[in-house]
């Protein structure tokens, strides 16, 4: 049983996200693209909330918008933008690229519609605990190993990024 606002919020949030995505790939100024991406991420977080995943939404905002995008902005500032802004923005293969991507998109939609009968539209049982708690239980229970690997991955990434960005190795 869905409330009326669901439809409205869905269309609003998804439209926001998609338009922000379009802005990301079309702006000349990378800073504009970064800001558009932040907007897209926020819209996405909203969509997560609608899907009853508050924890993931939170993580999305904190990590993605708050961490990664900041990182992006710092790097944009490090890199000389003035010159690149005056240059050609799209490469030589843009036509073929767009065609291929659209074809991919069409493929996806076709697959979805054709296979609609495969996934049932029921809702999963909501357990007693809160979403965060449940995720925590799963994370530290079933996915313990993966969790540790992920931390290792982050370590490697840190070292890699430091080494890459250093002036002198």
């Amino acid at each position: 049983m869905q409330p009326v606002a669901t439809t409205f919020f869905f269309y609003f949030l998804s439209g926001l996200t998609v338009i922000a995505g379009v802005l990301v790939i079309t702006r000349r100024n990378p800073v504009h693209s970064a800001l558009a991406l932040i907007l897209a991420l926020l819209g996405q977080a909203g969509l997560y909330l609608m899907l009853y995943a508050p924890f993931v939404a939170g993580v999305q905002i904190i990590l993605y918008a708050g961490g990664i995008m900041v990182l992006f902005l710092f790097v944009i500032m490090l890199v000389n933008i003035e010159k690149s802004q005056k240059e050609e923005q799209f490469n030589k293969q843009w036509v073929v690229g767009i065609l291929a991507a659209v074809a991919l998109g069409v493929l996806f939609v076709l697959v979805y519609t054709k296979g609609k009968s495969l996934f049932p539209d029921r809702v999963a049982q909501l357990p007693e605990q809160s979403n965060t708690q449940q995720i925590a239980v799963m994370l530290y229970g079933n996915y313990m190993f993966t969790f540790e690997i992920a931390s290792l991955l982050l370590l490697v990434a840190i070292i890699g990024a430091v080494v890459m960005a250093k002036k002198r190795i």
Partner: peptide
């Protein structure tokens, strides 16, 4: 790199359409 990416996508499309 972008050319490579394009080729990858094209290849993916090819497989996918074939299987589809």
């Amino acid at each position: 790199v972008q050319w490579y990416a394009l080729v990858m996508v094209a290849g993916l499309l090819g497989f996918a359409f074939y299987y589809a």
